[in-house]
Computed example of a mutant assay.
Amino acid sequence: MDKLSFNIFPNVNFIDLCMYQFGHEQCEPGHSFGPATRNHYLFHYVLSGTGTLMADNAKGITQTYNIKSGQGFLIFPGQINTYIADDKLPWEYIWIEFDGLRVKEALTTTELTKNNPVYHTHSKDIREKLVEEMLYITRHPSESPYHLIGHMYLFLDYLMQSAKSSKLVPGGKMSDFYIKEAMNYIEQNFQNDISIEDIAGVCGINRSYLGKIFKNSVGHSPQEFLMNYRMIKATELLKLTSLSIADVGSAVGYENQLHFSRAFKNIYGVAPREWRNEHK
């Protein structure tokens, strides 16, 4: 029998960074998982032993990687993958599945891509800190969601530091500044009737350029980011207050209840009232 601990994170109302599940497994020889895909990012760190990862690259062509202790691998959303423990020296690993509106932006600063999913680092100290955070999360599943998310932020920071890309994108620093300005404006004004032109104007750039750099860095258009942000705020209000559906819609920037309900259903697949009844 495999030695396995597995936990589902109890709260999905975190926007920038959220966990979905995490765990620790000492695999049996030849133990395999897949082929499968994930809806979110999934990072494994190998504590001991070895194994094999087979994952599609950016062109959809399956590549094979041999991974040993002290290394790890990142599976990307929608990426077909299979991983198999070695027959003689099976791996023991810890993992975290995570996502969020700023995760793609964070990972672009690392060398981890679909074409390069294996985690290596030249900094042993930072790698050890990353492992400490992963082990802490897997060993303390009963801590509060806010407590665990705090450690998740530290994990992501250590991942970014230890797998930092040596390639600098020309002009990247300025585009990063624009994106942060846009995000800050959305977070502070999502409840108002704001347009993408308003957001671009605050940044001092045109709408099409904002859309291009936002999509490349965050993985969403500014409009999608704004809508997702509003809907997550709406779920908090539906779950934690007794405000009417119309008032919840108004609180997140929708004066028309029908428009709010339609947008909410597009994201969550059910009407706001039905969502509230399921989660209250």
Rank of each mutant, 00 (worst) to 15 (best):
D2A: 15
D2Y: 08
K3P: 03
L4G: 00
L4H: 02
F6N: 09
I8V: 11
I8R: 08
P10A: 07
P10I: 02
N13K: 00
L17E: 00
Y20R: 00
Y20A: 00
F22P: 05
F22H: 06
F22Y: 12
G30P: 04
S32G: 10
F33A: 13
G34P: 10
R38W: 08
N39K: 10
H40W: 10
F43V: 05
L47I: 14
S48I: 03
S48N: 15
S48Q: 12
G49W: 04
G49F: 01
G51E: 04
L53T: 03
M54H: 03
N57H: 05
T64E: 08
N66R: 12
I67H: 08
K68Q: 14
G70S: 06
G72A: 12
F73I: 06
P77T: 10
Q79Y: 04
Y83W: 14
D86E: 05
W91F: 03
W91R: 04
Y93I: 01
I96S: 00
I96Q: 01
E97I: 03
G100C: 07
L101G: 12
K104D: 09
A106T: 02
L107N: 03
T109E: 10
E111Y: 05
E111I: 07
E111L: 03
V118K: 11
H122E: 12
S123I: 04
S123G: 04
K124L: 12
I126Y: 02
V131K: 04
E133D: 13
L135N: 13
I137C: 05
T138R: 05
T138E: 06
R139H: 15
S144F: 10
Y146M: 13
H147E: 13
G150T: 06
G150V: 03
M152N: 05
M160I: 12
K164D: 11
K164L: 14
L168P: 02
G171W: 12
M174A: 08
M174K: 15
M183P: 01
E187Y: 12
N192K: 03
I194R: 02
S195G: 00
A200N: 07
A200D: 04
N206C: 12
N206H: 14
S208K: 09
L210E: 02
G211V: 03
K212Y: 07
F214D: 11
K215A: 15
H220K: 14
L226Q: 09
M227D: 03
M227Y: 02
Y229L: 14
R230C: 11
E236S: 14
L238D: 02
L240E: 13
L240I: 06
T241G: 10
L243G: 02
V248Q: 04
Y254E: 00
L258E: 09
S261L: 01
A263M: 01
K265S: 15
I267V: 07
I267Q: 06
G269S: 05
R276W: 12
N277S: 15
E278C: 14
